[in-house]
Write a protein that binds this DNA or RNA. Structure first.
Length: 361
DNA sequence: CGAATTTGACCCGCGC
DNA sequence: GCGCGGGTCAAATTCG
C-alpha cells in the first residue's frame, strides 16, 4: 500500500550515536578539565549541555519509536489485506473440515460484539470495518468473561510429528489449565492462559492439525495487557503463519493455515493477541531441532535438508538479521519507560562519577 | 514445598 | 427439553 510514502522507513535505530556522544562528552570534559578545575561553572554548563543533549536524544528516540509503531501498523494492515485476498482465492475451491462447526459459529456470533467493545485492536489489524456491522443483542447471551475477548488469531507452525508436546514458544508465559479431545480431531486440544501477568486475559488453544500431525495450530484469544516476557526470549516457532479471524457475516470461521513460507531471517510476523507481533527465533540450534525454523530453512533452501545447521547459522550472520535484531532490540527497549529512566540515570551517574574522579586530581 | 501440569467433573450454549 | 460437545474448574499429581 502507501505506507511507505507515509513514513520514512529508513530508520537508523542502532546504538552508534550513543558511544559517539559518550566519546564527545568525555573529550569535552577532558579538554575542559584544566579550565574546569579553575572554573567549576563550566562544568555545570557542560553537564547542562549533556542533559539537554540527553533530552534531545530521548525525544528523538520517542519519535523514532512512534514512527516504527506506525510502520508496523501499516505493515500489518497491508499483510491482513493480503491474507484476506489469499483466503478469498483459496476459499473458492477448498472447504475446511466440516466438523465442530457449532462452536465456531458461536465464536462468530460473539466476536462482532467484542470488536465493538475494543475497536482499537481491529484498527491495528486493519479489519475494523468489516466486523462491526452486526447487531449487538447476542452479546447479552454471553455474559461469561471469555467472550469479551476481542481478537481471535490463529497461528500454525510446523513441528516434528514425534513431538507430542503442545508447547508453542511465542515469548509469552502460559499456564495450561485444561486439555480435551475434541470430536473433529483425535489429537487433544490444550488450553492455556497467559500467566506472565496476573490479569492478562489472553488464552490460547493448541491442537495438532487433523490433516498434518506435524502442524500445530495455536488459537489466540484476547490481547495481552503486558509486554512480551523479556526474561524469556523464547521464540516463536514460527514457521509460519497465517492468521484469520472470525467474521461478522455469520458464516463459520474458516481458518486456513499456510506453512512453509517465511522471511529471510528467522523471524515471523504474527497477529498475536497483543496486536501485531514480530517474533524472532533466538533459540539455539538444539531447541530449533524440535521443529520449526530448521524445517523452514530447509524448505526454502535450495541446498536441501542436510545443511540445516549451516543454514541456521547463515541466517544469524546475515546483515539483514543483524539489522532486524538491532531494530527489534531498540524498539522493545525504547518502548519501556523504565529503560529510558535507567539509561538517563546511568549516563548522568557516569558523568557525575567522571567529574568526581577528575575533580580529585 | 511451591509451582506447574494432569485429568475427571461440571457448566453452558447450541441443535434437534 | 434433552443430549452433545467445547470450555473451564479444581483436586490430585508431578516436577524442580
Amino acid at each position: 500500500m502507501e505506507f511507505t510514502s507515509l513514513v520514512d522507513t529508513s530508520l537508523d535505530l542502532s546504538f552508534r550515536p550513543l558511544p559517539v556522544l559518550d566519546k564527545v562528552a568525555k573529550q569535552e570534559v577532558q579538554s575542559n578539565f584544566t579550565g574546569l578545575s579553575r572554573d567549576t561553572m563550566l562544568v555545570k554548563d557542560e553537564a547542562g549541555d549533556l542533559l539537554e543533549e540527553l533530552n534531545r536524544v530521548s525525544s528523538e528516540n520517542k519519535k523514532l519509536t512512534e514512527m516504527l509503531t506506525v510502520v508496523c501498523e501499516n505493515y500489518n494492515a497491508l499483510r491482513n489485506q493480503l491474507m484476506e485476498y489469499m483466503n478469498n482465492q483459496q476459499n473458492n475451491g477448498v472447504v475446511d473440515d466440516s466438523a465442530g462447526s457449532r462452536k465456531r459459529k458461536a465464536e462468530n456470533i460473539s466476536n462482532p460484539n467484542n470488536n465493538n467493545k475494543n475497536n482499537n485492536l481491529d484498527i491495528v489489524c486493519g479489519r475494523s470495518s468489516e466486523s462491526s456491522s452486526s447487531d449487538e443483542e447476542s452479546s447479552c447471551k454471553k455474559p461469561r468473561e471469555e467472550h469479551i475477548k476481542t481478537k481471535v488469531s490463529v497461528v500454525s507452525m510446523k513441528t516434528e510429528a514425534s513431538d507430542t508436546s503442545l508447547i508453542v514458544k511465542d515469548g509469552y508465559q502460559w499456564r495450561k489449565y485444561g486439555q480435551k479431545v475434541t470430536r473433529d480431531n483425535p489429537s487433544p486440544r490444550a488450553y492455556f492462559r497467559c500467566s506472565f501477568a496476573p490479569g492478562c486475559p489472553v488464552k490460547k488453544k493448541v491442537q495438532r492439525s487433523i490433516d498434518d500431525q506435524s502442524i500445530v495450530v495455536a488459537t489466540y484469544e484476547g490481547e495481552h495487557n503486558h509486554p512480551i516476557n523479556p526474561s524469556k526470549p523464547e521464540a516463536a516457532a514460527g514457521t509460519t503463519t497465517t492468521t484469520t479471524t472470525t467474521t461478522s457475516s455469520g458464516s463459520r470461521l474458516n481458518v486456513r493455515t499456510i506453512v512453509g513460507t517465511t522471511a529471510s531471517v528467522p523471524c515471523s510476523t504474527t497477529l498475536n493477541p497483543s496486536g501485531p507481533t514480530i517474533t524472532l527465533d533466538l533459540t539455539e540450534p538444539k531447541t530449533v531441532a524440535k521443529g520449526d525454523i530448521m524445517k523452514t530453512s530447509s524448505s526454502i533452501s535450495p541446498t536441501g535438508g542436510n545443511r540445516h545447521r549451516t543454514t541456521e547459522r547463515d541466517h544469524y550472520s546475515k546483515p539483514e538479521f543483524q539489522q532486524f535484531l538491532i531494530e527489534q532490540m531498540a524498539s522493545s527497549l525504547t518502548k519501556d519507560p523504565s529503560f529510558k529512566a535507567a539509561l538517563a540515570a546511568a549516563i548522568s551517574g557516569k558523568i557525575l562519577q567522571h567529574n568526581n574522579q577528575t575533580s580529585r586530581w
